[in-house]
Design a protein around this nucleic acid. Structure first.
Lengths: 207, 207, 207, 207
DNA sequence: TATGAATGAGAGTTCATTCAT
DNA sequence: CATGAATGAACTCTCATTCAT
């Protein structure tokens, strides 16, 4: 066969299946990937384990995701899109409400999303992704949240909205990271974080 | 990479050198380890690279740290000890001051420590360390901070102090994670996080 | 890459299509195969790439050529046949002419053929084909060329003709291999090789 | 361990052993590499087979030759150097002799070298090496042979010497390629090729 | 018959760890 | 103790080939 050597690498891309059965496969592979990445983190995750968990042969996995990196990227994109949809929905349903109410809803939505998709955290925190991509991704997320916050009544100034978006995102990470703790700690601290945010927002919104 | 298997596991203990020369060696190895772990993360770090960066032979590294895991643990312990010393110092020098002042000083100290010791974050966040060890470590850190906060004037209730300690720690992580961002973002958001904390502490301390 | 193993080996035979459509398919596949083999060599060539270049599905390629080996063999045969036709034509049109004129014509014909069919070289040089097949193929080619040379005026002795055929063939390879070189080199050296051959033939023919 | 992923690839280089026993290993590995490359060609050769033939573990092979490519390159360089030494020796010992004698000696030396080092042919003919490297290598070889020829009595004009060098080299390839043939063929044709060269050189030298 | 998904042996390569010198 | 060579399991990825649709 062709040299096993690293060949030209013509920028391989995720292959979209053309046949029906392929779609199910791809879905299973993605699910398995998400599970493994979530459990072990990107580095410690193994393509072999992903394939096994999906009940597929290793070659099948590679048919659709030509590299581990691409599998991760694809997963990340999917999750990002879902998150984006969720944010848009929150925006639609809560436009015009006061800032604190907005933040409450947003907080709940984010927490729900992150808890249901632990792979997102694992993939977003990777230290070895393209700086640009990382930056772009964050900018998009922040932008969307800022836009959401800007629709409060009274409205937040755009610059302020961006800052507040970042603050909220950071608090979200805190909430998520508390997930590894005892329930008693979680149940004590999470409400405090929320309360802290509310205090902060009141001070911000009243400006 | 899915942990390269540890072939055998007899004798798991960091060897403490007896001679002065040994101490220098160990120090160099630790410094190199910290640098590499900080730069690449635990998984992607390589024992070979650590040894090389320390100007030592790979065998020499293993003489003192029989396992990658043990090197990380040793490093982590060292940093924890240093952090502990720092916290104790803050406590000594600020006992009796109001809560907000305490928090300010603590915040500054923590930020300084974490920025000077990026390896700490890399090692503390590892997903694959002994759950127990992790828990114990956190408990110790939180306890120390809680003790510090309990010495405010007026004093915080012990239970409350523990909660606040966690909140502060989480905010610290946020500050640290903002380090990868543009300076402009950092300079806008970090003060806001501080302000948020102050608002929170005022509400807590006034109880 | 150390031949990817042929899993099973039942039914090894090129399927000949019955319909017109099939013929077009096969032709496209062969053309693609020739192109890929010529560009990358047998080992580095990929069945997938061949199919892609032919605009066919991989399954379609295997329908007609159950093995990479068989595709190569089929191609090789085709080219050999074409070469044979060409030699026959040269023989017909030049019978009775002096040896040097014959050689000139032969040289031109061979060069033209090899330059138009780079796959021939790629396939003929394979180190891993059946020794017997290789030998037989060469014998045929040499025989045909010897027969051609034997028709010169004055005629060459049969044994001598065989030897001269080999010499000519070797010189042809040289000409072909010079194709990767700068034009200036090619244009200087190729005429010299021809001149050398003429000198040699004069010495041979005058015996 | 560190990501199994293709990392930065900091231009790895062949490692020279520092300890005595390493030298023996490296020699064995090179010998095995030469044997396998010669037998199967670069593509079909396997690092595993090379290691096995050297009686070494695969990791040992990679300790000194971080890639298959580098092993091949190192081997090629060695052989080139040996060839170069041989040519220099021929030059030293035959300066001033007539062109035909020179060529005779050169021919014998080259044939001997190539027959003793079949890996050279396998490695020099690789289709996938850097065009520049290939060109440079050939230029060097030709230059050295041309220099040798220029020392004939009477001397060859430099431009002509370069051309003749190429002609000789091409004839050498022919000789080598005849090695796969029956002894009877080889013994008939090789002398003819030599005779052809002599005729050519007489015509060239007499200009 | 055409299509493309599925398969899995095998290739190149890495790195934690051991051990002779 | 120091050194660096030796080891080999495990990893990512490829591709000839098969087979369900």
């Amino acid at each position: 066969m062709a040299s096993q050597v690293a060949r030209k690498k013509i920028r391989p891309a995720v292959r979209t299946p053309t046949l029906g059965r392929g779609h199910a496969r791809v879905a299973a592979l993605k699910a398995a990937g998400a599970a493994v990445f979530a459990e072990k983190g990107y580095d410690a995750a193994t393509m072999t384990e992903v394939a096994a968990k999906a009940g597929a042969a290793i070659g099948s996995l590679y048919q659709f995701f030509p590299t581990k990196e691409l599998l991760a990227a694809s997963l990340h994109e999917d999750l990002l899109a879902e998150l984006s949809r969720m944010l848009e929905e929150v925006r639609r349903e809560n436009a015009g409400r006061p800032l604190t109410a907005l933040a409450d809803r947003l907080f709940a939505g984010l927490a729900d999303f992150l808890l249901r998709n632990p792979a997102f955290t694992a993939l977003a925190d990777r230290r070895d992704i393209d700086r640009k991509r990382k930056r772009a991704t964050r900018a998009q997320l922040r932008g969307q949240i800022a836009a959401l916050l800007a629709q409060a009544t009274p409205p937040l100034a755009p610059g302020k909205a961006e800052t507040v978006a970042i603050v909220i995102l950071q608090l979200m990470k805190a909430v998520v990271s508390l997930n590894g703790e005892d329930a008693s700690i979680r149940e004590t601290v999470v409400p405090e974080l929320k309360r802290m945010l509310q205090l902060y927002l009141e001070s911000v919104g009243g400006e």
